[in-house]
Structures are given as structure tokens and as C-alpha cells.
């Protein structure tokens, strides 16, 4: 009986001692952490994609708490809802960022852009692009080895086997920019999603002169400047034989789309043109 009692008492005293020491140590080495960091992190999507420019959601939350002005910071994955929620926690103002989406600026499908050589190396766009311009006549276009698809963490991309080009699944794309960084040819760009997800862009980045570009790919921008001339809003600029549409100026009038001789300007999510009402041909009276 005695032994049991001694054991309980001695262990109890030891435990209490350890607890006291630990308490003081914890007080001494306490690191103050703003509790709002946890709250903000909770509100973030926890995708840790790096789309905000910080290594993970925690780092972004810290930056948000630290910054006086958070209008430069944006979580592209969470979008406006997340940003206003976090701003509410911090009592700060947040600028409404336009939702963005990745677009593939190459329409060099197997049909438009015939292959003239065969690539026989490692399956990596970066390696292929360090070796040569690509298996077609266009040295700017998509190599089709899918490094962007591998980089996407959100299942927002796949390679279309028919065209040999990557396709972006708009609903899944969070505009984190991983594919933009992955592409060695700088083909993918983050563009404003646009009202009702409607947008217009030049689906080509070939800077060759018109003839050479056209020879390599029937859907290439040939730098003819027709779109630049017709644009009523000065949104289109042709530089180095390549047109670029400024999405902040573009009013989606679609005049350029019709004007482009090679159909290099693409429009997305516009309703199909209304079928023209054909006048019923009057049957000749017999």
C-alpha cells in the first residue's frame, strides 16, 4: 500500500514540476502571432498554388495582415468573394480585381500547321524548345508536349489529341498562372475573363513576316494591320508583325474578328450569329 502511495506522490510531484518549468519556458519563448493570420488563412481557398505570388496561402495571409494597403494583393483562386471576406476580417479596403482566365494564343492545329519534321527527344517542351523551333515551320507556336497541362493543379487543362494543342476548361481555371510560367514559348496569357465570360484575343504569337508566317500556318497572324485600322477603340496594336488586343480597351465589338483574313482573332462565348431569315423564294406561278 505504501509503495503505491509513494509512487503516486513522487510521479505527481515530478509531473507538477515539469508543468511549472514548461509553463515558464513557454512564457519566455513565446512568439506572438497575430491571430488574424489564422483567420485570414481560414478564409483562403487553401490551394497553395502560388497564383498570388506568395509561397502558399499562409504566406499570403501573413502578407495581407502585414500590409497597410492590400489593394495590390489578390487571390486569383478565391476571386472577389474571398477577397472581400478577408478584407472584412482585417477591416481593410480591397480593390475589385477583374477575374482572369488563361488563354492559349496558338491555333496551329495539325490541320492549320503541317508538321515538317519529327521530334524524337524527351517529352518536355522546355527541352524541345532548347533544341529547335518546333516540328512545324512556325518557331513561335505550341510544341504540343503538354508541359502546361502537367503544371496545372486544378484540372483545368487537357491536350486535345485531334489538334495537338492544349485546351483550357474555363470553369476550372483559377488563373493561378502556373501554365503561363511553364510554357517556354510564352503562348499562354492571363486575360480578363470579360463580361459573361466573353472575350476576344489574337490566337497567335508568330512574329515572322506575313508570307513566312502564312506559309508555316494558315491560321497565323500576318501582321496586315487590318484589325488595327478597323478597331474604333484603339485597342489593337501591331508590333513585330503581330497584333495584340489590349483587353482593357477592347469593347468586344467584334469588328476585327470579321476583318481578319486568317481568322487569327478568336471570340469566345458569344452566342452564335442569328441565322439570317431567308425570304421564302416565291414559287413561280406556273
Amino acid at each position: 500500500m505504501n509503495v503505491v502511495l509513494i509512487t503516486i506522490i513522487s510521479l505527481g510531484v515530478l509531473g507538477a514540476l515539469a508543468a511549472i518549468i514548461l509553463y515558464f519556458v513557454a512564457q519566455k519563448f513565446k512568439v506572438f502571432e497575430d491571430p488574424r493570420i489564422d483567420q485570414v488563412e481560414e478564409a483562403l481557398p487553401a490551394a497553395n498554388c502560388g497564383g498570388c505570388g506568395f509561397p502558399g496561402c499562409r504566406a499570403f495571409a501573413e502578407a495581407m495582415v502585414k500590409a497597410d494597403d492590400i489593394s495590390d494583393l489578390n487571390c486569383p483562386v478565391g476571386g472577389a468573394d474571398t477577397m472581400s471576406a478577408t478584407a472584412a476580417i482585417l477591416g481593410k479596403e480591397v480593390a475589385a480585381a477583374d477575374p482572369m482566365v488563361a488563354v492559349v494564343r496558338c491555333n496551329g492545329t495539325c490541320e492549320n500547321r503541317p508538321r515538317i519534321t519529327e521530334y524524337d527527344g524527351a517529352t518536355s517542351c522546355t527541352i524541345a524548345s532548347s533544341l529547335y523551333g518546333g516540328d512545324t515551320g512556325c518557331s513561335n507556336g505550341c510544341l504540343g508536349l503538354g508541359e502546361c497541362v502537367d503544371a496545372c493543379d486544378f484540372n483545368a487543362m487537357y491536350m486535345d489529341e485531334k489538334t495537338g494543342l492544349p485546351v483550357i476548361i474555363e470553369d476550372n481555371c483559377v488563373s493561378c498562372g502556373a501554365c503561363v510560367t511553364a510554357c517556354p514559348k510564352d503562348i499562354i496569357e492571363l486575360r480578363k475573363k470579360g463580361p459573361k465570360s466573353r472575350r476576344i484575343f489574337v490566337s497567335c504569337i508568330n512574329t515572322d513576316k506575313g508570307g513566312a508566317a502564312k506559309k508555316a500556318c494558315s491560321a497565323a497572324c500576318i501582321g496586315c494591320k487590318k484589325c488595327q485600322k478597323i478597331c474604333p477603340f484603339d485597342a489593337i496594336e501591331v508590333e513585330n508583325n503581330l497584333a495584340y488586343i489590349d483587353y482593357n480597351k477592347c469593347k468586344l465589338c467584334r469588328k476585327c474578328v470579321a476583318e481578319c483574313p486568317t481568322n487569327a482573332i478568336h471570340m469566345v462565348n458569344f452566342p452564335p450569329p442569328k441565322p439570317k431569315v431567308e425570304k421564302p423564294v416565291e414559287e413561280k406561278a406556273e
Binding site: A122, S124, I127, S130
Partner: peptide, 12 residues
């Protein structure tokens, strides 16, 4: 395996 291709990538 295309070892050198990957090593070149790494060297770059």
C-alpha cells in the same frame, strides 16, 4: 533514357 537532354535543361 535521354539523360543528357535533362542534364542540359538542368545546366541551363
Amino acid at each position: 533514357r535521354p539523360l543528357l537532354d535533362y542534364i542540359r535543361l538542368g545546366k541551363g
